Structure formats: C-alpha cells, structure tokens
Simulated assay, not measured.
Amino acid sequence: MTAGQSLVEERVADASPASDHQLPRHFPALDGARGVAAMAVVVSHCANAGYFPHVLGEGTGQMGVLLFFLLSGFLMAFLYGPRAFTREQVLRYATHRIARVFPLFYLVIALSLVVGAGGPIRFFDLSGGEWVWPVALVTGTSVLWTIPVEVQYYLVFVLIWAAAKRFPLGVWIAAGFAAQLLALALLRLTVRGNQFLPYWFHAFFLGTIAGYLLHRHARAFLKAARAPGLQGLGWIILLLVPLSLPELRRMAGFPMLPNFIDPVTFGMPVLVFLAALGGLGPFRYLAWPVFTQLGAVSYAIYLLHKPVMWTLEPWLSGRVPDLALGLAIVALSILMAAVSTYGFERPVQMILNGHGARLSRRFA
C-alpha cells in the first residue's frame, strides 16, 4: 500500500455482537476513506512521473499507505477483538485474511513472471530472483512491499488478540510498543531499507488500539462525535490536508523526518482516520457511494495502477498532454480494479471462505 491493508475489506456485519448496543455495525465512511487512500497512492505516483503537479507526489502516497494500515489494524480489532480466542475463530480469521489478500497478490506476481516488464503489457520486474521475496511474504519491489508487511501484521494480531484476553489494556499496549522498538533496533543493525513491519507497526497498532477502545467506550465516542465543536474540527482537518503534503513542506523548508515517523506525514492520516470514524464535518460525506465504491475496489486499484501506468506510458506519453495521461491512468486503474474485484477476487474469496467455514466447523 499498505498495506492494506492492508488493504482489508471485511464487513463489520460479520462481527460478533457489539459490546455496546449503540455501536454501529458498519462504518461506511471508513470504506470511503479506504478509497481516498488508494487514490492518494495513484495520484502521488502519477505526480512523481510528471503527469500531475509535483507537489502531489514525493510522500503523499505513503500518507495513503499509512491510512490503509490504520484502517486495517482498526478493522481487525473491531471484527475479532470481542470474539472468543478459540481455534475455530482463529481459523476463520486466517481464512478471511488469506481469501481477501492472497488471490490478487499472487495473480499479479504470476502475471509479472509470465508477462514480464518489457512487453506491450507491463507488470512488475521480478527477474533475477526478485520474485522470491514477495512470494515468501518478506518484502517486494514497488508497491508489492506493503502486502508482506500487511500479512506479517496479521500474524502479530493473533498474538495481540490472545494477549488482550489475558492482560489489561495498558499492559499489552506497552508490550506492543516495546516489541516494536526492540525489533527496530535489531533491524537497523542488520538490514537496510524501511519496507519491513517494525517501521510501520505503530500505524497498524494504533488502529488496533482504536478498535478495542471503541468497543469499550462506544457511547462516549458517539456522543462526542456529535458535538458541534468536533464537527467543526472536521472542517479544520480537511483544510489542513493540503498543507500537510510532504513535498509542499519540503519546498517551504520545513524539517522532515522519514515518512513513517514524521509527525505530520503520519499525524494527518491519523486525524483523517479518526475524523472518518466519527463522521466529523465533511468526512461524513465519505459515506457517499462514489467514495464507498472506490473503497470496495481499493485493493485492486493499489496493486494494478502501476502496471496500468507502465502499459499506457509507451502508447500515450508525448502524444497527449501529461495531465490527460495522468487522468487516463486513474480512470483505467479504477476500471481494471472493478473488473478484478467483481470478476475475480470476490468469486475466489467466496470459494475460499466457504472451504474455511467448513474447516473451522470441524474444529468447533
């Protein structure tokens, strides 16, 4: 992403009964936020290629990825946190995650190996053994790196889920951040690059904490979200979004940290996530169908927009204005994502979930 997100799209309606009767079973604005996150990645990559204003690139996409990770962590906790930690439930969780993420991810890898990166239709360059790392869910080239990170957090969440049943909230939260710091220290000593879970764990983890807290304090949260002051805060957050763009701050001479720990680059996705969760001010419009439909195909948009870009560039670059090429990449990415989601991913997902349900019942 991204994550992804992780890139997670499982309906809250599948969750066990909420711990508070006032707690919604579904947050449409979060679906819309997922769509916005996907579009932030696409627009950023188009800007980096020169098709949109450069200020929209150079880090804007990673803000979208951070939002993906926050949403992924939240939905895992919201969906599964209240459930009993049993072998049946863990199998069901694993099946849903595998069915949601693996089919398109491994299809894209297969197409990259078969079609390659040099023909009229271009996918990711996985030559020279580069395919091993994404297949093994270690890391990946280009946007593929976020999916291993997402899947690695799926495994970590099982530990969090178990710990949350046995230990107080503050204990497992402190343990989670301590583990991240230890893993980061070890990683910095051994591996270069930041495309590994310890660098992004806090985004997933904060979303997970929000999911658990919402179940505990739904009444207070929903009451506060309806307050006029917080509704007005939503408009302020929206106005601050353009000012938070990394490249704009870089051009203005502000000091910058790496995206995963920069307080603004990471802080703005957190604010957008909370504003969408509470439906604050303009963020309630993320529940409109135009946004939720983007959210429904966001995973495929994320994975397919780079192949779309690389395929269109040789045909259209220099023949049409740069802006037109950028808009064509956006439009075709959405179209291909819709075909992928409804023509491939959803049918495969239903089959895998059906097999998983039968398997989990055997262990009931």
Rank of each mutant, 00 (worst) to 15 (best):
P120Y: 11
F204P: 02
S333R: 07
C46W: 05
E10R: 13
P198T: 08
E150D: 14
L181G: 13
A218M: 02
P53G: 04
M39A: 08
R25W: 11
V264P: 05
L159I: 10
Y212K: 04
R358H: 12
P82L: 07
L104R: 02
L66Q: 12
L187G: 08
L316G: 05
H21W: 10
R100F: 09
G193V: 09
H202D: 13
A179P: 07
L316V: 07
L79I: 15
A227N: 15
D125A: 00
R358Y: 10
R166F: 03
A40K: 03
L335I: 15
W161M: 01
Q5H: 13
W133R: 15
R166I: 01
I351Y: 11
G318Q: 12
G4F: 15
L352A: 07
G118K: 14
V264R: 05
L238N: 06
G119Y: 00
A324M: 14
V308P: 01
A331S: 13
I121F: 08
A175R: 09
G32L: 06
S340H: 05
L243G: 11
G267T: 10
K165W: 01
A84M: 08
S127D: 02
G73C: 01
E10W: 12
L169I: 10
L111H: 05
L181I: 12
A287L: 04
F124D: 00
I160A: 10
L107Y: 05
S142Q: 15
P347I: 07
S6M: 11
S127A: 10
Q195F: 11
V43N: 02
E58F: 12
R361K: 10
L75T: 14
P307V: 00
S6L: 14
W200F: 14
A338P: 00
S19R: 15
V290S: 11
F68G: 01
S112E: 00
I261L: 13
Q5A: 12
W288M: 14
L66I: 14
V90E: 06
P134A: 01
S360V: 06
T208S: 14
Y153W: 13
K223D: 11
T341H: 14
Q22V: 15
R34D: 07
I351L: 14
L75I: 15
G32M: 07
C46V: 09
L274C: 11
S72I: 01
L71T: 02
A203H: 15
V138E: 08
I121G: 00
G343Q: 06
V297D: 05
A13C: 06
T265H: 09
Q231S: 07
S298V: 01
T208P: 04
L186I: 13
A203F: 11
G140P: 03
Y80G: 04
H45M: 03
L184D: 06
H96P: 03
F52I: 05
P246D: 07
W133I: 03
G170M: 06
Y93I: 00
H215C: 03
F344H: 04
R358C: 07
G57V: 06
K306Y: 11
L169A: 10
S72M: 04
A287Y: 02
Y302W: 10
L75W: 14
F221C: 02
V241Y: 13
L70Y: 08
L56G: 04
L71V: 04
G253T: 10
M350E: 13
G193Y: 09
R34H: 08
A203C: 13
E345N: 02
R11A: 15
M268C: 08
I261G: 09
